[in-house]
Design a protein around this nucleic acid. Structure first.
Length: 176
DNA sequence: GCAGTGATCATA
DNA sequence: ATGATCACTGCC
């Protein structure tokens, strides 16, 4: 075997959100808390592809919250929603092109808010680089999820986005 | 089926 | 300053 596990670099994220969303399936989300490292295989993602995508926060223009999406790929975008939940996203694409991938599930945690709660992820990671130094990063450990086991569906919870709500921008590993 | 919960943003 | 909205979850 010549595969060597490695943490994903900015170049991985500096591509279209749909490409990144698909390729994040099977990668490993890692969170260090003191000496402990939690590591879970990503099994559900959604792509928010750019300014034309009415489901994406960046389509409303630059605001304090969305500014990070207009910045370089490879940073975390973490925001608070419904008064309770933190959502974890990876910024993708180029500078000034607001796009990101929402990480919706990893390991046993199916659901974006359950994931962030279980791995103690909150606003403190917003705008930080996706790298081991931030204590929250993503590794490629060589795991391959067969394409047959990855289903594409419309994104969850974006019914307000008209035709964009129907686009199959969600990737999820089939049960079994 | 829907209440809870509060940051964020537009409007003023 | 106020009100609407919200990339969700858990309980009814």
């Amino acid at each position: 075997m010549d595969f060597k596990p490695h943490s994903l670099e900015r170049g991985f994220f500096a591509r279209p959100a749909l490409t990144v969303a698909r390729e994040l399936i099977g990668k490993v989300l890692c969170r260090r808390i003191g000496r402990e490292v939690l590591a879970e295989v990503i099994n559900e993602t959604e792509a928010y592809i750019g300014p034309q995508d009415l489901a994406a926060h960046g389509s409303k223009g630059r605001t304090a919250r969305t500014e990070v999406m207009f910045g370089p790929a490879g940073n975390w975008y973490v925001y608070f929603i419904y008064g309770i939940h933190w959502m974890l996203n990876a910024v993708t694409d180029d500078i000034d092109h607001p796009a990101a991938v929402l990480i919706r599930g990893a390991g046993p945690w199916t659901g974006p808010a359950k994931l962030t709660k279980a791995m103690s992820i909150d606003k403190s990671f917003n705008t930080l680089p996706i790298a081991p130094a931030t204590e929250l990063w993503i590794e490629d450990r060589g795991l391959v999820i067969r394409p047959r086991h990855i289903r594409r569906t419309p994104r969850i919870g974006v019914d307000y986005a008209g035709d964009w709500a129907k686009k199959p921008y969600r990737f999820v590993v089939e049960h079994a």
